[in-house]
Design a protein around this nucleic acid. Structure first.
Lengths: 227, 227
DNA sequence: AAGCACACGTGAGAC
DNA sequence: TGTCTCACGTGTGCT
């Protein structure tokens, strides 16, 4: 593997310390030609070393390396740069949403698809950054799950559980996977507990069904929990 | 500038289309040796072309280019990657700040006057706009009032009532008048109902007291205005 | 002219 | 075994 480089470096060192113009074929047997040839040789050697050092440094700057090739290094760098650019776009979009969310002042107006930002921002950030790093940790320990009817076709869901590992991400995943008609969603973490409050458009007859669906979805991602 | 590459490409094309083994010095004048030599030559040529293409693609992915060198391309890519990483860190820190600003998570800290933003914004907005316009309307018809304990010193209050007149303003007034240590507050109006979700710093022993206090405050406001 | 950047062909080593 | 990757020395062209 790296022995290649080391061998080559040693070779280069040896030739550097002994600049014997070994293979000069003496088109004109003057000493000047050989000296400019060796100058060229050592210059080229330095240029190559510089380029290889840069390439190695580039490899060090890229966290995900597929192979140790030169081409793979560059390809990984390209992919990583594109990933970073996309992540930067997502983060800036999320910041925009958060800023406009923090000074959102008129509740009950047009929050049909503006308010589930919390779920969408979760998908665009946590999934790409943390999801593959923490694939499966503790199961979710549900502390309380309530489903109440509000008005005629609105259900109010409140789910609190202990914040173990990535419980918040899992909860968001659960609610996202259920394809509900979410009106508003709110997640709060306080004193080791994560609480999610969701308003869903549904008939009040679906209240008990929804509770069972949520429980099943939770048990699907976490094996067991204590009521 | 790029004429260098083009010239080289043309040279390569010419040599590709006419694979005349021009400079075979015939160490052994058999055809096999020359064929494997040319195989090596064209293979190396493809490898170099691939690497150069990758490098060119990398240059295309980096927006800021200092020079058109190979080494400069790699160096610019490294600098750009480090810039992106630092920007990503900054953006994530900003998001963390925004998130923890919108939902303050540490009970018992210093959120006495930072977190009731919702109430303060209400006061500075609703009071000035609506308060003197609709001073007396219907009493508040409470649909549900729950007070649960969350963790050790946190109470979770959920109050839903019919949105008659300025129920939302009254509710905000009620919660503001109680001088509670509010961690987060959330108000949602949907289908003729107004729902307020509040997290309060308090001992769980105060749960029932708080419920009674809220009920009395509601009745006090309602009595004072219309009932 | 001296310096620089590049592509080329070639032998060597690793898989 | 062949195939892949690499560093090397060299010639060429640009500045």
């Amino acid at each position: 593997m790296t022995d290649i480089f080391w061998n080559d470096e040693l070779q280069r060192w040896a030739m550097d310390e002994a600049p014997t113009q070994s293979n000069e074929y003496s088109s004109s047997p003057e000493g000047a030609a050989s000296t400019i040839a060796s100058k060229n040789i050592v210059s080229e050697r330095n240029r190559r070393k510089n380029l290889n050092d840069k390439l190695l440094e580039l490899r060090g700057a890229v966290p995900r390396i597929s192979k140790l090739d030169k081409a793979s290094t560059i390809k990984d760098a390209i992919d990583y740069i594109q990933d970073l650019q996309e992540q930067e776009r997502n983060l800036q979009a999320e910041i925009m949403e958060l800023e406009s969310e923090s000074l959102k002042k008129d509740p009950g107006f047009d929050f049909e698809e503006e308010l589930p930002i919390l779920l969408r921002s979760k998908k665009s950030r946590c999934d790409q950054i943390y999801d593959h790093r923490v694939p499966m940790s503790h199961p979710i320990k549900v502390h309380e799950l309530r489903v109440n009817s509000m008005g005629e076709n609105t259900l109010f869901v409140s789910l609190t559980c202990s914040k173990d590992g990535d419980a918040m991400i899992k909860i968001c995943d659960i609610f996202e996977s259920m394809k509900l008609k979410i009106i508003t969603a709110n997640v709060v973490i306080v004193s080791g507990m994560v609480m999610k409050t969701v308003l869903i458009e549904a008939d009040m007859g679906e209240r008990d069904n929804l509770k069972i669906k949520i429980e099943r979805a939770i048990s699907a991602v976490s094996d067991h929990w204590s009521t």
